[in-house]
Structure formats: C-alpha cells, structure tokens
Deep mutational scan, measured.
Amino acid sequence: ETIMEVNLLKGPKGLGFSIAGGIGNQHIPGDNSIYITKIIEGGAAQKDGRLQIGDRLLAVNNTNLQDVRHEEAVASLKNTSDMVYLKVAKP
C-alpha cells in the first residue's frame, strides 16, 4: 500500500468522485475505511489523473477519515474550499 497526498482544485461539478464505506455502511465487510468507488467523467479527479477507483481515502484537509461514519466523510468533502488536500492509500 502506498500513501499519496493529492491537492485537487474543485471544478464546477465539485471534486468529481464518489465514495462508499464508513461505520454502518461498510464497502468491504469488516472494514470501516472510505473508498473511492467512482471517478466522474470530465470531473476534477479524472482531469488530475492520480485518484483511482479502489483508493482508500485517509484524510480530507485536516480531517482524519479512519473509523468515521459515511455521513461524516461526505460532510468533510462538502465543507471544503476550492483547493482540497486529500491523503489516499493506493492498493
């Protein structure tokens, strides 16, 4: 597993990826991690090219996303300014 830091500039459609996982909404049984499950065509993440489906999202800005509820992860992604710092684990 490789840890990678990505600074992503939000586009008109936001960050351009979808997530799944978290406490109460496990993407993988027994694993509370938050995973990237979709990269949106023409979105910021696709244009940047570094994020991939299956990457594990560890942090957004200063918010640690390990062992959080799905709703908390979504809220932390929404409550960001235009430049967003992401910390991901690549499988």
Rank of each mutant, 00 (worst) to 15 (best):
T2I: 15
E41G: 08
L9W: 04
I3G: 06
S18H: 05
I39Y: 02
A59H: 14
D55F: 11
A75N: 12
L58A: 06
Q52E: 10
V6W: 09
L8E: 01
I28T: 14
L15Q: 02
L9N: 09
G14P: 05
N32G: 05
L57G: 00
Y35A: 02
Q52R: 11
I28P: 06
T63N: 15
A44R: 08
K47A: 13
I34F: 08
L57M: 08
N25H: 11
E5A: 07
F17T: 01
I36C: 04
F17A: 01
Y85F: 09
T37Q: 06
I28F: 14
V6M: 08
P91H: 07
K90P: 03
L15H: 06
H27Y: 11
N25V: 09
G14L: 03
A73P: 01
A44N: 12
G21A: 03
K47R: 07
V74A: 13
V68E: 03
G49M: 04
V84N: 15
P29T: 15
E72L: 09
I34Y: 07
G24Y: 09
A73Q: 01
L65K: 00
V84D: 02
K78V: 09
A44L: 11
G54S: 05
A20K: 12
V60P: 00
L77T: 05
D31A: 04
I28W: 08
K90R: 05
N25F: 10
E71R: 08
T2M: 15
N62D: 15
M4T: 08
E1S: 08
G24R: 12
H27R: 09
L57R: 00
S76T: 11
K13Q: 07
K13T: 04
E72Q: 08
Q66Y: 08
V88A: 04
G24A: 13
G22K: 02
A73M: 03
E71T: 07
Q46A: 13
G30Q: 06
N7G: 06
V74R: 13
V88M: 08
T37K: 07
K87D: 03
I28H: 14
V6K: 01
N79P: 10
G14F: 02
T80E: 08
N61Q: 07
L8G: 01
I3K: 09
L77Y: 02
I36A: 01
T2Y: 15
S81D: 14
N64R: 11
V74E: 08
T37M: 11
I23D: 08
N25W: 08
M83N: 15
D31V: 05
S18P: 01
S76R: 08
G16Q: 02
V60N: 01
G54V: 00
A45Y: 01
Y85S: 12
G30N: 09
I40Q: 10
G11N: 14
G21C: 03
S18M: 15
I36T: 01
K47F: 05
E5C: 05
Y35R: 04
K47P: 03
V84M: 06
L57S: 00
E1H: 09
T37Y: 12
S81V: 07
V74N: 06
K90T: 08
G30P: 05
L51F: 04
G43W: 02
K13I: 10
G22R: 02
R50W: 04
H27P: 04
N64Q: 08
V74K: 15
K78F: 11
L77I: 15
H27F: 06
S81N: 15
L9S: 14
P29F: 14
G24I: 11
G24T: 12
G16T: 00
N79G: 12
I23K: 15
K78M: 07
V60T: 03
R56G: 02
K10A: 03
I36R: 00
F17N: 01
G42M: 08
Q26E: 13
N25G: 12
V6E: 01
Q46M: 10
P12R: 08
T80I: 14
G21K: 05
K90M: 12
E72V: 11
N64M: 14
I23C: 12
I36Y: 00
F17L: 06
N25T: 12
I36F: 02
G49S: 06
Y35T: 06
I53Y: 09
L57A: 01
Q66I: 07
T63I: 15
D55N: 11
L51K: 00
R69Q: 14
L9E: 11
L65T: 07
Q26H: 11
S81R: 15
S33L: 04
A75V: 13
